[in-house]
Design a protein around this nucleic acid. Structure first.
Lengths: 190, 190
DNA sequence: GAGATACCAGGACGGTCGTCCTAGTGATCA
DNA sequence: TGATCACTAGGACGACCGTCCTGGTATCTC
């Protein structure tokens, strides 16, 4: 079962709060209250302070999304179906959470880009990980390397834009449209 | 000349700080320091407090982007050229600001979606304004209404996703790719 | 001139923030 | 049994937050 240790519960709760309201709005006090973890041991598990917790939460979010992507390509045959499956999964998660969630990185990325080089570097690494993973999986479906790179970019760009609009409109429609747009990009020859 | 009054300077500075670091990170004290406006008259001009300032900043950002979009369609002939011009303009502004800026709405949208219904509503209205404007301009270039709607969505989704990646990677490359992706979507028949 | 109105100065207020600390608990191992 | 270690309890600390206030100045209206 997941999140058995105090440290793990803190990280996964931090990821949830970061994606819902962002980094500055997530205080240690709210975190330990939400996670039900001991307030006194925060700096025991994260001597680097809130920033270290932030990096850990970003890494967890990166891995969770990567897992979804891998699963999407396992259960589908074409690239457009894989992305559609991925986006649908993201939409379901978003709706099930009452449109409070979204990308685990987007909010922190935007907030901390000019403030914390450490967190920004973690976000940069995360996006690079996704991009590399996607490009590899797309290339594995028969696309040449350059085109796979390009489609991997499109998949991330469209997802991030769509998640933002879904959040604001409280609807998964933008994600559905984004999946269709991606399918068109993937199908077109030349 | 712009921003002649205290109120206008406060709003435009707020927009800048919101897009750079977000809503919670932008305090009144930082704002008046940055804007060089009197601290004592903040609640004179904005009796509704920080939230009222936030709404005003969102509305200003909405109008600035709308102006750029209108200009883009004035100086180009095809839809894909208009979007490319728009994205290039956005990339130039981003780079000129040292990759600190970005979409004036994105960060606030993500941060406040679960916190402030007022600000969320302002963001929703803003995105709807852009979408309506774009759909109208695209339809004016000969696309049928439904397709124009769809392309307007794609233009906003791709821009938001690209701006996020540009910010993190400190590069305008994602915007260039996004423009190319949009061009492919706009060109393809059917 | 007098009164009203718009705006500015600058700090008080209570609250929350991240950080850090001392004291204590419970388990492990000699 | 006693020493060591990982972990927890809970608050102190100074800084900053949004808000609101009193007192003042400039400008306009009659």
């Amino acid at each position: 079962m997941p999140d058995t240790t105090t440290r793990e519960r803190m990280i996964s709760t931090a990821m949830t709060l970061f994606r819902r309201e962002g980094y500055p709005a997530t205080s240690w006090r709210r975190l330990v209250e939400e996670a039900g973890t001991p307030w006194g041991s925060a700096y025991h598990h994260f001597p680097g302070g809130k920033e270290q917790l932030g990096v850990a939460a970003i890494e967890l979010g990166t891995e969770l999304v990567a897992k979804t992507v891998r699963r999407a390509f396992e259960r589908t045959e074409t690239v457009e179906d894989a992305v559609r499956w991925w986006y649908r999964k993201a939409g379901q998660a978003l709706a099930a959470d009452g449109y409070r969630g979204g990308c685990p990185l987007a909010t922190v990325s935007l907030e901390m880009a000019n403030v914390s080089p450490t967190l920004t570097e973690a976000c940069r690494t995360a996006f690079a990980t996704w991009h590399r993973l996607l490009a590899g999986l797309i290339a594995g479906r028969g696309y040449d390397a350059e085109r796979a790179e390009d489609l991997a970019f499109a998949a991330v760009e469209l997802l991030e834009g769509a998640l933002l609009l879904c959040r604001v409109r409280r609807s998964t429609a933008p994600l559905d449209r984004a999946a269709t747009h991606f399918a068109r990009l993937a199908r077109e020859e030349s």
